[in-house]
């Protein structure tokens, strides 16, 4: 793993009117690492991710991605950077009325000149490539269905294929499984991680579930009220350290209590599973 950071935030603050969404966030992320942004709703996870793709401009501080200062980019240069960064949304954000395959192809728009409408308007080579990506996420059979006929989990996998179509170096995911049932969640999270590892992508994913983050990430960055309150490797944590994570990212004692119960259940469930496996 190279030690040079592909993402570097320095003292980034962002205000929306009276709301301080991010406050003095400094963060470096190395190429190829799998990082979770962990925090409750409203803690600033989405805002942080959006800064990395130039969808938001910081009130102060600097954002550097792939060696470029994002807030200074405009027009063609900004679009070129966005082409190198894939973004996966909580609500999938597919165009429901066109086919799955065409949705995947829209991921290649930044590489193409001029507008496209309809499958035949994309070069054959790209269509082949889109098909291969659909196979990678296990949805080749659905290529010609309208996107809105798929289940939530399937739609999110199409969105992943669309991001792959960009041939990205960085993959950002904003609560990618918050709208999915547990089984699809596992599938999608696994797919993201597997694809990230296979292609050596840098993956930054926001989540609000501590247990999922612990099981999935290499590194966990905790946010609370727009501040980084935690930055730790995910492996080899003791139970006390895990409790501390809950304590830091949660906002009130009531929430900590609720999370504690949840954690006990998770621990019990894992123990039961291990027993069953024996």
């Amino acid at each position: 793993m190279s030690a040079s950071p592909v993402i570097r935030l320095d003292d980034v603050s962002k205000r929306f009117g009276a709301t301080q969404a991010l406050e003095e966030v400094s963060l470096e992320i190395e190429a190829g690492s799998v990082v979770v942004l962990l925090g409750l709703s409203g803690s600033g996870k989405s805002t942080l991710l959006r800064h990395l793709d130039g969808l938001e401009v910081p009130t102060s501080g600097s954002v550097e991605v792939l060696g470029q200062s994002v807030p200074e980019l405009r027009g063609r240069a900004l679009r070129a950077l966005r082409g190198r960064v894939g973004f996966i949304f909580q609500q999938f954000e597919l165009v429901g009325s066109i086919t799955v395959l065409e949705n995947v192809l829209t991921g290649a728009l930044a590489r193409l000149r001029g507008p496209r409408l309809g499958l035949p308007s994309y070069p054959k080579a790209l269509r082949e490539q889109a098909f291969a990506h659909l196979e990678e996420v296990g949805l080749a059979a659905q290529a010609f269905q309208r996107a809105d006929t798929l289940s939530g989990g399937q739609q999110q996998r199409v969105a992943i294929a669309r991001a792959l179509m960009q041939d990205p170096e960085i993959l950002l995911a904003d609560e990618p499984v918050a709208s999915l049932d547990p089984e699809s969640s596992d599938q999608v999270m696994n797919l993201i991680r597997e694809i990230g590892l296979r292609r050596g992508l840098t993956v930054v994913c926001s989540l609000h579930q501590v247990d999922l983050a612990l099981a999935w990430a290499d590194r966990i960055v905790g946010l609370r009220h727009g501040r980084v309150v935690l930055d730790t490797p995910a492996e080899g944590l003791s139970k006390e350290q895990v409790m501390e994570i809950y304590g830091r990212v949660a906002t009130s004692t009531a929430e900590i209590a609720a999370l504690q119960d949840e954690l006990l259940e998770t621990v019990a469930a894992i123990a039961a599973e291990e027993n069953a496996a024996r």
């Binding site: 190198r84 829209t106 728009l109 669309r162 960009q166």
Partner: peptide
Amino acid sequence: RALRATGATRAQIFFA
């Protein structure tokens, strides 16, 4: 928004 995030132009977003 999703297509803007992929780096598509305004015209491309309109048609796609």
